[in-house]
Amino acid sequence: MNKYKKITLDGLIYQNPTFMLVLGTCPTLGLISSAFSAMGMGLTVVVILTLSNILISALRKVIPNAVRIPCYIVIIATLVTFARMFLEKFVPDLYDSLGGFLALIVVNCIILGRAEAFANKHTVPEAAVDGFMQGLGFTVALTLMGIICEFIGKGSLFGYQIMDFKVGMLAKPAGSFLVYGICIAVFTYVIDCIERAKRVKANKLARENLLREVA
């Protein structure tokens, strides 16, 4: 069970695709001006990433090494096309707000990256959990930044107007860059502090043990 816990923590925190690896930046910057589209993009990626990880992991022994990248691209492109049809039919609002970025999920480095780095080396359940957690990490990060940008940039949350005060810049690409940059900085700083505290504690324990042994 420890294995899955590690995959989960990696996906959400230590290898968070948005804040730690800084992958999939184009849809992130393009869509965080609205919390709704940011979350929609995140959830779409969760589904596509989980499915692509499962498929690629299941086919990892069938696909010859030489043509693996083209095969992955075809599988991902198929899933994206399917997602596009599905959203257009059943969630047209989200389909409209994602715009061109929906098709660009194909070239989102997170998906091909996870296929290459994880799915083709692990079993199906592990790959599925990894895909889901990485996607979830992406979704949480996007939604968080979407809320910040939309609240300050438009004075609304998920489309509901809350206040009149707004800083229009934050709803533009310039603001997206700024918020994304600051969020990465804060995230890495906090992780850094926690790690350091852990290390200090471990060192202290080690020293106490040593002292006790010496005594």
Partner: peptide
């Protein structure tokens, strides 16, 4: 630059200024 800002964060803040100029 501050340690937390080094790398991607400061690059994004820089990009923010370019975007504002292009507005």
């Amino acid at each position: 630059t501050a340690k937390a800002l080094a790398g991607f964060p400061i690059a994004m803040v820089t990009a923010c200024f370019i975007c504002m100029a292009f507005t």
